[in-house]
Design a protein around this nucleic acid. Structure first.
Lengths: 142, 142
DNA sequence: AAGCCAGTTGCGAACGATTTGCAACAAGAG
DNA sequence: CTCTTGTTGCAAATCGTTCGCAACTGGCTT
């Protein structure tokens, strides 16, 4: 069993436990999300899901994505005001670096930055509920 | 002359030099933006500008905001997928902390974080063009 | 295996923020 | 003061996303 297949199972389980029905279209979307190693948007997910469920509607894709987000199994990102892009939440927390020329997304994580963020918030009497950090970058001329 | 008035002048100048006409509605918006110490959205800016130009249209507000953003004299923020909010770019660079209960925005800046961000990008062969960091926070129970 | 029924689907229409086409209008150079 | 060109207000269009609704289907119940 591949990593992606395991992810599919875990995602499916999460849904089932939440009392959500596993329909053909949801199974397809869970598959697609489990396999994706990039950050696809809704129309792209629809395209990929059509391999398993031809004719799956965009409404269903959006509805399912919203449901999955509420269950906490996927993350929705809004990079620079562009259409939302999604990723499964099975990986550890990380932030994003977006190549402004190609749209490619690189993930990274810095404990030191997270610590500094918490310190800054605490100093002003706040606690962080969640945060967003995006670096819009360009390949450095080598 | 107040600080806000000076800001208005600088903003006006920036536009004039860019070959943009200073109309009544643009002057009003520049005023409003120069005075604002919060982060208003477009309808709110329209409301405030109506004091000087009753009937100013939302299209004009949006058109002007886009122009000002292109001139680099204002910044457009998209906090959590909500409608865009604006601020004049006369202050030094800073990031934002958004109180998720009240919507209030607190500005902050950390040179150490900025340095770490640059290091991380450099390590992966990128240079940062711009970045966005938002801390969604909640007042800590005292 | 057949039935039931609440949860889901696909469709198209509705939505909210923002942008645009266009004819009337006004800034500011000459 | 006039002329030219950029700007305005309006309404209609756009784009991503959501919603209403009738038809459909998981999956528990017999």
């Amino acid at each position: 069993m591949t990593k992606a297949e395991k992810r599919t199972l875990r995602l499916t389980d999460a849904l089932r436990h939440a009392g959500v029905r596993i329909t053909r279209q949801r199974a397809a979307l869970l598959d697609v999300l489990a396999e994706a190693d990039d950050h696809p948007d809704a129309p792209e997910l629809q395209r990929r899901a059509e391999a398993q469920v031809p004719g799956i509607s965009l409404s269903t894709v959006y509805r399912t994505l919203t449901a999955l987000e509420e269950q906490g199994v996927i993350l929705r990102h809004m990079f620079g005001g562009a259409p939302a892009r999604f990723e499964h939440a099975e990986t550890a927390h990380h932030d994003h670096m977006i190549d402004i020329d190609t749209g490619e997304v690189v993930e990274f994580c810095s404990d030191r930055i997270e610590q500094l963020q918490a310190d800054i918030a605490a100093e002003l009497g706040y606690e962080i509920v969640h945060h967003r950090m995006e670096l819009y970058v360009r390949k450095r001329p080598s």
